[in-house]
Amino acid sequence: MDWSEIFGPDALVVLLSTSVAFAMPTALAAVGETVAERAGVLNLGLEGMLLAGALVSFLVAYYVGSVALGTVAGVAIGVVLGALMAFLSVSLRTEQIINGIAIVLVAQGITLFVFEKLFGGEEQPTIAGISDVEVPLLHDIPGVGPVVFEQNVLFYLSLALALGVSLLLTRTRFGLSVRAVGESPAAAEATAVSVARTRWLALLVCGGMAGLGGAVLVLGQLNVFEEDVSGGRGWVAIALVIFGRWNPLLVLGGAFLFGFTDALQIRVQAVSGGIASSVPTEIFGALPYVVTLAVMVAATVLAGRDAQPAALGVPFRKGVNA
C-alpha cells in the first residue's frame, strides 16, 4: 500500500477536511450532551435524537426540496425530544437512565417504521448534495484554510454552533446557572436560580444540537437515509463527554479525533483495495470507535481528579435535597 496516497501533501488536505466534516454530527451531539450533563441530567436519549433529526430533516428535504427547511425540521424534532426528556426527568423526576433508553428505542422503532412505510421496496431515495463554499480570505490561510474553509454551509453553521455552545457554559449567566445547578442544585435554588427551568433549557439545547447533528449527517454528508444511519454516534458522544471530563473544548477535541479515524479508515480501505482487501472491512469500520475510546480512556486515567458534576443523574425536589 502506498501511504503517500493517504498522507501525501494533497491527500492529507483531503483526509483532514473529510475528518472535520465527519466529526461534525458527533461534535454537535457531544457539545449538547455536555450542556445537559453539566446541568445535572444524564441524557442517554442522544442517539435517538440524532436519529430522529436525521429522518425528519431527510423527509422534509426530500419532499419539500429545501435543505434549509430540512435542517430546521431536524433541529425542531431534536428540541421536541429534548422537551420530552425534560418533562420526564425534570418535571416528573423519573429515572433518567430509563427515560433516555426509552427515547432511543422509540426513535429507532419509529424512524425505521416511517421510512419503510414511505420507501419500502423502492430504490433507495436520495437527495441532492449541497455544494461546498469557499470562505473568502479565510480559505487562503495555509494549512487550515483548505481543510476548514472549503466546506458546505451546514458545516460552517455547525462549527459556529459547536464553538458557541461551548462558550455558553463559561461566558453567559445561563452557563453559570447550568454549572451551579449540576453541582449543587439546593445552593443554586437558594440564590434564586430555578433548577427546573435551567435543566429544561439545557435539555432543549441538547436536543436541538443532537437534531442538528442528525440533519448535518444526512443532508450535509450522506444524502441518503437508511436504517441506523446514526451508527452509534450518539453513544460515542456520551462517552466523549465523560472522557472529555465535561469540558466542552476537550469534548470537541475528542469528536474530531473520532472524525479523523473515521475518515482515515475509509481512505485506507479505498487505497488498499476496499472489499478485495484481505482485512475484513468490519475491522476498519470499528477503528474510529476503538481508537477514540482508547485515547479518551487513557486521558481519563491520566487526568486524576474527578470532574463529574456532583448532582449528575439526581432529580431535584425543592426542600428535600437541601
Partner: peptide, 9 residues
C-alpha cells in the same frame, strides 16, 4: 447551617 455555596465555582 449547610452552606448554600456551589463548591466548584
Amino acid at each position: 447551617q449547610h452552606f448554600m455555596l456551589v463548591p466548584t465555582l
